[in-house]
Write a protein that binds this DNA or RNA. Structure first.
Length: 270
DNA sequence: CACTCATGTACAC
DNA sequence: TGTACCTGAGTGG
């Protein structure tokens, strides 16, 4: 379930489970057998998330790059690791526990130059304190592309995915089809600040909750509800259901191959 | 069992 | 714009 907050949690978890200790590395499924052999027995030195990319650096300066893509999943836990089940591309085991990786978009060893290339093509990550939102604004303010599409472009902003995209636009009351160049700088500042808040909370809790206290079902006098992805949201995957603020049915459409959800009343009529 | 869908990206045309 | 990648969960028969 990978948006940026998940990957930042994974980085922290890797340091906690394996940091500064020897790690056993295997590829039970076999598709990362060569890489696993090269990493086996090394010490994990750093674990970092940049947007949705996880970078694990080992004591011989080898860097493992993992990107979960849309299917990828980690299963982490304390020892002992369970008998391998299903297609496990990568298994790390150590005294602290185990980490099983399935279905990633990328699981590969990177040369130092590759790491730089990777990081250079990412926009600022709201979860990294040093990130500069002005770098994103430079591209957004010149673009004729919709803000909805720009928010999913990892070269513009690194980390947000389809849920944060939909939710942050809803919370700001912004029409998803507003173009980058028609967005005001103040609106961008607001979106960035909200991404920082929401995603940091996502790192803390491991879920995506975006509904403000005044709009919770309890506060609105409605029956309680749980969204199927585990958190509580305004519009993501709520097609046809009443907007939590104004009760207008939530709309959905496909935009650049992904589902986009929005409230046509709270976020401006088209 | 078959089929659909998914919090993503890269490349082809 | 379309399609491949890749795995599991959910649904329907």
């Amino acid at each position: 379930m990978p948006e940026g907050h998940t990957v930042h949690r994974l980085a922290a978890a890797h340091l906690e489970l394996f940091g500064a200790r020897t790690v056993t590395v295997a590829s039970p499924q076999g598709r990362f057998a060569d890489g696993a052999r090269r990493l086996d027995g090394r010490v994990l030195e750093t674990a970092d998330a940049h947007g949705k990319h996880l970078l694990l650096r080992f004591d011989d300066d080898q860097v493992l790059h993992v990107h979960l893509g849309i299917y990828g999943k980690y299963a982490l836990g304390p020892p002992p690791a369970p008998a391998p089940a299903g297609a496990i591309r990568l298994r790390l085991t150590g005294e602290g526990g185990y980490a099983d990786l399935r279905g990633p978009n990328a699981c590969e060893l990177l040369e130092p130059g590759d790491v730089k290339t990777l990081l250079d093509r990412l926009g600022p990550d709201p979860l990294r304190p040093e990130s500069d939102p002005a770098l994103a604004w430079r591209r957004i303010s010149r673009s004729r592309t919709s803000i909805a599409q720009l928010l999913m472009d990892q070269a513009v902003v690194a980390g947000p995915g389809n849920i944060y995209r939909a939710e942050v636009l809803f919370r700001a009351g912004i029409d998803p089809w507003l173009t980058g160049r028609d967005l005001t700088e103040a609106q961008w500042a607001g979106l960035w600040a909200d991404l920082r808040v929401l995603m940091a909370e996502g790192v803390r809790t491991g879920r995506i909750d975006t509904v403000r206290p005044e709009h919770t079902p309890e506060a609105m006098g409605r029956p309680p509800r749980v969204d199927d992805h585990g958190g509580e949201v305004y519009v993501y995957r709520r097609t046809g259901q009443p907007c939590l603020v104004c009760e207008t049915p939530v709309l959905a459409t496909e935009l650049a191959g992904r589902n986009l959800f929005w409230c046509p009343a709270c976020q401006f009529p088209r």
